[in-house]
Simulated assay, not measured.
Amino acid sequence: MTNILFAAGAQRWTTYEPLLRAELPDATIACDLPPEEVDYIVYAPGSEVQDFTPFTRLKAVLNLWAGVENVTGNDTLKVPLARMVDTEGLTQGMVEYVTGHVLRHHLGMDRFINQPLEGWGQEAPPLSADRPVTILGLGTLGSACAAAIAALGFPVTGWSRTPRDVPGITCLHGADGLDTALRSAEILVLLLPHTPATRNLMDAAAIAKLPKGAAIVNPGRGQLIDDDALLAALDSGQLSHATLDVFRTEPLPEDHPFRSHPKVTPTPHIAAFTRAETAARVIAGNVRRGEAGEPFEHLVDRDAGY
């Protein structure tokens, strides 16, 4: 009998319980199991499980989120860790969020939404072919977003820390590649993981390399941006707008400047929301692979942090 511990929060259990039982009818799935009898742990940030040592027959930890920075540094975790890669739900949600906000900034829609129409100045935006977009991060989410944006006619540059090849995308990597990617980015999308190497990647010096008046869309990680540098660039006009779905502190504090700044659109971490129906299928698929002796999918490189 396969035993699965659901350690992803009691508030999610009522949603996931019937879905996981339907996918894995022969498994025992519960929120409370003797640690020495657990084969798999369904996990989420903030889980009550922080010490994995008692789980002596554990085969894998299956994370419900794409982000794994809250668990990769846990020295008691010795088994494979899989992150959530859900093309049906999570990835599609991110593609829709990024595409929507790239188009919003490209078309200048904020000028006409909730603002009176003054005069009749017919200044049209450029066509997509004349609006370079850069996406930092070419993993599953970044590559999918890059492909969707390119399909609309935008010239898309993608940057990653290691070489990648995405059809139809100008792919750059390394320090020199980052410099080139930033200098052409009239709209910049951040889809990198949070690691020591990416923390504050968009500091004052990096923001200064962007074309004047560029817009930033960040549905990746709040720690990628230096908040003070971002606010200063918005105030100076170096940046025209920032759409932010992730923050250093979540929920975003009521008194945070991002809530009231006229050039910031905050959204409540909804860009790549884990959909239970499709996530349950991903979790079940990895359990079946493990029980069949096959390699797990979507494994985290613990050294790289993602």
Rank of each mutant, 00 (worst) to 15 (best):
Leu230Val: 02
Ala197Phe: 07
Leu58Pro: 11
Glu23Gly: 11
Gly100Ala: 12
Pro266Trp: 04
Met202Gly: 00
His105Gly: 06
Ile113Thr: 13
Leu230Trp: 02
Arg83Trp: 07
Gly89Ser: 04
Val71Glu: 09
Glu186Val: 07
Asn3Phe: 11
Thr157Leu: 00
Leu77Ser: 01
Ala129Ile: 08
Leu81Phe: 10
Met202Lys: 06
Leu244Thr: 06
Leu234Val: 04
Leu239Gly: 04
Ala10Phe: 09
His261Cys: 12
Asn114Tyr: 10
Gly213Arg: 04
Ala185His: 01
Val133Pro: 01
Thr140Gly: 05
Leu81Cys: 11
Val38Thr: 01
Arg221Pro: 06
His194Ala: 15
Val95Ser: 01
Asp203Phe: 11
Leu190Arg: 06
Val300Asn: 03
Glu186Leu: 06
Leu64Pro: 14
Val68Asn: 09
Ala233Gln: 13
Pro35Glu: 01
Thr249Ser: 12
Pro196Thr: 09
Ile270Val: 15
Arg288Met: 13
Glu123Ala: 13
Ile216Trp: 03
Glu17Lys: 13
Pro80His: 02
Asp179Gly: 11
His269Pro: 13
Ala148Trp: 06
Val42Met: 02
Lys78Gly: 01
Met84Arg: 01
Gln11Trp: 13
Val282Leu: 04
Gly237Asn: 11
Leu5Tyr: 11
Asp130Pro: 05
Thr87Leu: 13
Pro25Cys: 03
Asn63Pro: 07
Thr180Leu: 14
Gly67Tyr: 03
Lys209Pro: 05
Asp110Lys: 10
His101Gln: 13
Phe247Leu: 02
Leu244Phe: 05
Ser184Met: 07
Lys209Trp: 08
Gly9Ala: 07
Pro80Ser: 03
Val98His: 02
Leu138Tyr: 03
Ala272Leu: 01
Glu294Gly: 12
Asp130Lys: 10
Ala146Tyr: 01
Pro219Asp: 05
Gly220Met: 04
Gly9Asn: 12
Gly67Phe: 11
Asn74Phe: 08
Ala214Tyr: 04
Arg288Gln: 15
Ala10His: 14
His269Met: 06
